[in-house]
Nucleic acid binder design. Structure first.
Lengths: 246, 246
DNA sequence: CGCCCAGTTGAGACATCTCAAGGCGCGTGG
DNA sequence: CCACGCGCCTTGAGATGTCTCAACTGGGCG
């Protein structure tokens, strides 16, 4: 049962925090060949854009706004989320260096994009992107593939939110991080995210996330060297916590 | 806060249960112009397909299988879901007459498709669909649009599963049904789905769904004339149960 | 007419949330 | 370089919503 291989893999921040990354995103040897390929093709968009910056917690765009720009993230991390009238928040995805945001819709933004930490990005006028998509089939295919990947990620996320217990969610999440960064047992994962962001992504409260991290640590399955770092001690045992999902 | 207008709207069974519907799906006056339009364009695929039937609970295809066929549903209803090793199930979407399934991915099916009730469908060989997508830009656009709509639906679904209480989920769900069928207060909605399917869609147990229906009925917000029928008595009061979401 | 399945209802268990307090790491300023 | 303070994280205790297990009911189909 390995259908969620693509899962929310591309969801989390890379190691470098402030070092601006050049156009070829840092993810050297990223296991997802498709992603790399798409980004290569889509990097021909680069010349059309202008650099811009967002401070931590600043909003790139709001759900419902007319879609005027798309962005490629150069450094930092962005959360894509839905906000409700009474303040509840559901994070759909995290985007990091090399990823695009605002490419997937037409008309209006479906999600709000906020900077998890300071972000440098390239902004593209939507009209130009649309023209590229119309004119170049390779770019069209690239965008198409990204959207398909997003759909899959969202569907994988549905299982997490619909069927998993807190322990399973956190375990799956850590495994996603590890897979995404290509780390092995014993290597440090820089997760960049605070407990609240993780909670909003997993549909839990920050206290529950914290307790679950603590429990996994107590069992020796993971280590928590410092704030926003995790080390997987045993991928096998962590996987065992996910009840066949991950 | 009306961002979920697109939501899982296209998710549920139409009124006619067994009457096979001709190629122009029954949904006369469907509020979603885009959907209608897309289907019109995509109906030019019809000539490529062959009719097939599936009994209630039969599987159209399994997650992970190589994607060989796409289907257009003529009558009945299909659930698209993920199954876990230990028997948990999360339904991502329901598809009904006029909808396509298996169109959205390449490579392998990401979800399992099962017949909620007896289904008549048109099957298209994937190779032919791919050719059409490559050759005809209007079809390509149609498919593209459908996938974008699916993505939006999935993201809306994330909020339901991540943030809403049982009462809010059920209320949102009924409102989706009503909107989808275009019914007004006092009109009967044929939902076609059993409590278990609703539960698996909403990330609840069937008992909780049942209790919630009962409570809404007791309050006079809805009526439950018979099995698998609902009548919304007050859309306003029902909306009030959703905490700004729906 | 009666069986069978879907749905309802109840009672108790339990996971997660809520509210609250305490600790400590990290960045800042001295 | 070290001390300080703020915010993040952890931990605790109690409340509660949902699940679980179980019995019962009713409608529909054979």
């Amino acid at each position: 049962m390995s259908f969620s291989g693509q899962a929310v893999r591309k969801s989390l921040p890379p190691m470098q925090s402030q070092f601006p990354v050049a156009k070829a995103p840092a993810a050297g040897g990223h296991p997802n060949a498709v992603l790399g390929q798409e980004n290569d093709v889509l990097s021909s968009l680069d010349t059309l854009g202008s650099v811009c910056r967002f401070a931590r917690n600043e909003t790139l765009f709001d759900q419902g706004q007319d879609l005027q720009s798309s962005y490629k993230i150069v450094s930092g991390a962005v959360r894509l989320c839905r906000l409700t009238a009474d303040g509840r928040r559901q994070i759909a995805e995290f985007r990091v260096a090399g990823d695009f945001v605002g490419l997937e819709w037409d008309g209006q933004y479906a999600l709000t994009a906020e900077a998890v930490r300071d972000v440098v990005a390239i902004r593209y006028a939507r009209s130009r992107v649309d023209r590229m998509i119309a004119e170049r089939s390779d770019i069209r295919e690239g965008v198409f593939g990204l959207i398909r990947r997003d759909l899959r990620a969202a569907q994988d996320h549905l299982i997490t939110l619909g069927c998993q217990t807190a322990k399973e969610r956190v375990a799956s999440f850590i495994l996603q991080l590890a897979r995404r960064d290509g780390t092995r047992d014993g290597e440090t994962i820089e997760m960049q995210l605070g407990r609240q962001d993780i909670a909003d992504y997993l549909g839990l409260t920050l206290e529950t996330v914290s307790r679950t991290f603590t429990e996994l640590k107590r069992k020796g399955i993971i280590a928590l060297p410092k704030r926003r770092q995790v080390i997987v001690r045993s991928t096998a045992r962590l996987t065992a916590q996910t009840a066949g999902l991950n």
